[in-house]
């Protein structure tokens, strides 16, 4: 039996909003450690990895590991039926062909119950090497979202370059060009507004903005986003997932293959 209860059900709604347009079908791997998912987009250019730790749930029971394959747009449709303040409970029997979602409104006697069909998916699990990156940037997530949205007006790709204490996002297209330069901020008065850059070596790499704009759908999950870059490897865009108390619940990591010179 698998059962996971989340008082702040909105977190699950936000996670689905952040992945459903990138990945159609995926499997949640549920173990005593928590729930995780790894899936590539249909064109195999990007990869998304989600982790929700067991101790972040208000109740978590997983007697034996289960794989819950599902259509994410179906799951997202069902989650839209839950209110933002609802408690969400996921339940799956050991050998069932569906998952049950129970939504409970706060301080009300209303509960609703939905079922989503499970699917057997051939999932390929990719091994992600755990290597240090040349550049790590932490910045406000809304700023990253804004930059990606603005530069997509100019071109299809953004060139990210980092040198000294600044990171530069540049795009070119038929209409002209655009550049956004961000410098490391000095004060830590408001940590969520800060920009911090740690650089081992200068870097310049290009990425498709279409995917970065998909990743930015995770913005409501976290006030800060972390970008990690190294020469000739995929970019990592990470949003940590925290609950209202600020406790660490897990993460969404997106990996994006670069565009390289032919």
């Amino acid at each position: 039996m698998f059962e996971a209860k989340l008082i702040q059900g909105a977190i699950l709604k936000k996670i689905l909003d952040a992945i459903k347009d990138l990945v159609n079908e995926a499997s949640w791997d549920c173990s005593s450690q928590g729930m995780s998912l790894q899936a590539m987009d249909t064109s195999h250019v990007s990869l998304v990895a989600v982790q929700m730790k067991a101790d972040g749930f208000d109740k978590y029971r997983c007697d034996r590991s289960v794989t819950l394959g599902m259509n994410l747009s179906s799951l997202s449709k069902i989650l839209k039926c839950a209110g933002n303040d609802d408690t969400i409970t996921l339940k799956a029997p050991d050998d069932g062909d569906k998952i049950t979602l129970v939504f409970e409104a706060k301080n009300e006697s209303e509960t609703s119950e939905y079922e989503v069909k499970l699917m057997n998916l051939d999932s390929e699990y990719l091994g992600i090497p755990d290597t240090p990156y040349s550049v790590n940037v932490k910045m406000p997530s809304h700023k990253f979202q804004r930059i990606c949205r603005d530069l997509q007006q100019i071109g299809d790709a953004v060139t990210i370059s980092c040198a000294k204490d600044s990171i530069r996002f540049a795009a070119k297209g038929d209409l002209g060009s655009g550049t956004v330069n961000l410098c490391q901020t000095a004060s830590a008065d408001k940590p969520e507004d800060s920009v911090s850059i740690s650089m081992q070596e200068p870097i310049i790499q290009s990425f498709a903005l279409k995917y970065l704009n998909h990743f930015a759908k995770a913005t409501p999950l976290s006030p800060q986003v972390s970008l990690s870059l190294s020469p000739d490897v995929p970019l990592v865009v990470e949003y940590s997932i925290t609950d209202d108390d600020g406790s660490d619940f897990g993460y969404i990591r997106y990996y994006l293959a670069p565009k390289i010179d032919e």
Partner: peptide, 14 residues
């Protein structure tokens, strides 16, 4: 001219 790489060019199946 730049070409789009795939994620499987970097990460291998386990």
């Amino acid at each position: 001219k730049k070409v789009q790489m795939r994620i499987s060019d970097y990460f291998k199946c386990e």
